[in-house]
Nucleic acid binder design. Structure first.
Lengths: 225, 225
DNA sequence: ATGGTTGTTTGATTTAGATCAAGGTGGCAA
DNA sequence: TTGCCACCTTGATCTAAATCAAACAACCAT
């Protein structure tokens, strides 16, 4: 799998829409595939690096570590999403740790080359600025969640924000990671998440089956948050 | 004070360094002064707006409100710092509330005009991208702080991050806002902050005198965090 | 199958911090 | 001076969630 990625593998990602084929071809020529096993680390915080990435299959976990080694998950990155774009402006060092949660295929883009493109392509710059603005905005609301809401409220909001399959007034959600990981993302312990789940189950608003959760009363649910 | 701001009033701000005089003059021609009384609101979250701002004197408070009306301060913006640049990419709506903590003078920049400049000026784009990266990075560490540390640790880190006057091994810090505001910024209640302060005072590591705090043992202090 | 490893649940206990409540303190205006 | 108001402090109580501990389930590799 050391072939050069094809344009159609990444042209639909937000950042690359509206770019012309010639430019996409240039980008493709400097990009390469990267495969990770489940649990494999891609980079650590402060590692020097000159790539940013697009997830094609699988899920990446971005996280920080406290001194005592406990990790806090900041973000789960799924299919067709970019991560680590900021490495281009952070002096070539990653600001977080990144590891695969399952077997994962990525496209790696050359940061220096891309930075050069930015210099001569205003549309690309604006697309990236819009991308960063979205990220800033989501981080701000994340901070808000962490300070103003209880663990249960945060879980409910998280669940409602997840993509769901809708069946006759109910929503079926597939958790994109283990419950410990979700707990870390929500800033709570696995035990607390487990208790939140059983409380909501007892109240009859959700059904839990391994990583699949059915929201029986989305409206009652919305009221909690 | 409805005169056009002079280039020298803003040329030192991070974003504007390295820009040539002609460009700065164009920017100045579309900018204007804005004055706020203590406590005055500049904009509310979701307000449509087409300006972003530079603080020349005073302090701005950026915050969010929960349904019950309680506010959470996200950031205090002091002299020579920009805020609300993201309005250019957020569809012309502000993502937070902004109010002055004291009498404050701002320079307001025209977002649409600036967006136009970005389209034709790669250096400006890159400067703004670097600015946004810094912001993303500080938000990420902020999230980290909120989830992995106690209120006391957060306060200590905050205090050490503040600009200080150093006198014979001690640091003197002037809090940039009332203690309730600082408490909100740290994600704790005013009562808890008050208790943290008296605890540290009893331990003999700080001296508190109204909004002035002297860190007597910066090294012992660093160990707490 | 068997054991080992990892993730999940449940219960008992502890704790940081919120909440409720009551006094201080200081600045400012009449 | 007096009173008012906003801010800060201190104390008592309450609570969400962490921690500690143990059992349990699921999955994999030998």
């Amino acid at each position: 799998m050391s072939t050069i990625p094809d344009i159609k593998d990444f042209r639909l990602a937000y950042l690359f829409r509206d770019l012309d084929r010639a430019l996409l071809a240039q980008i493709a020529a400097r990009a390469c595939w990267r495969e990770l096993d489940a649990g494999e680390t891609l980079f650590a915080k402060n590692d020097p690096g000159k790539w940013f990435f697009l997830v094609k299959t699988g899920t990446m976990k971005l996280y920080l570590l406290a001194e005592e080694g406990q990790e806090h998950v900041l973000e789960l990155v799924g299919r067709e999403h970019l991560f680590a774009e900021a490495v281009m402006f952070m002096g070539g060092r990653y600001a977080v740790h990144a590891a695969a949660l399952e077997p994962t295929r990525l496209i790696a883009f050359d940061a220096d080359f891309f930075l050069g493109l930015l210099r001569s392509n205003a549309d690309l710059c604006l697309a990236l600025l819009a991308d960063m603005s979205r990220r800033v905005h989501s981080l701000v609301t994340e901070i808000d969640r962490l300070t103003l809401q209880t663990g249960e409220q945060r879980f409910v909001q998280y669940l409602l924000a997840q993509p769901a399959q809708k069946i006759s007034g109910t929503r079926m959600v597939r958790l994109p990671a283990s419950k410990q990981t979700i707990a870390s993302l929500l800033g709570i312990t696995p035990e607390t998440l487990s208790r939140i789940l059983s409380r909501l189950r007892d109240q009859g608003v959700i059904q839990v089956n391994a990583e699949t959760i059915v929201v029986l009363k989305p409206d009652a649910f919305t009221r909690i948050s």
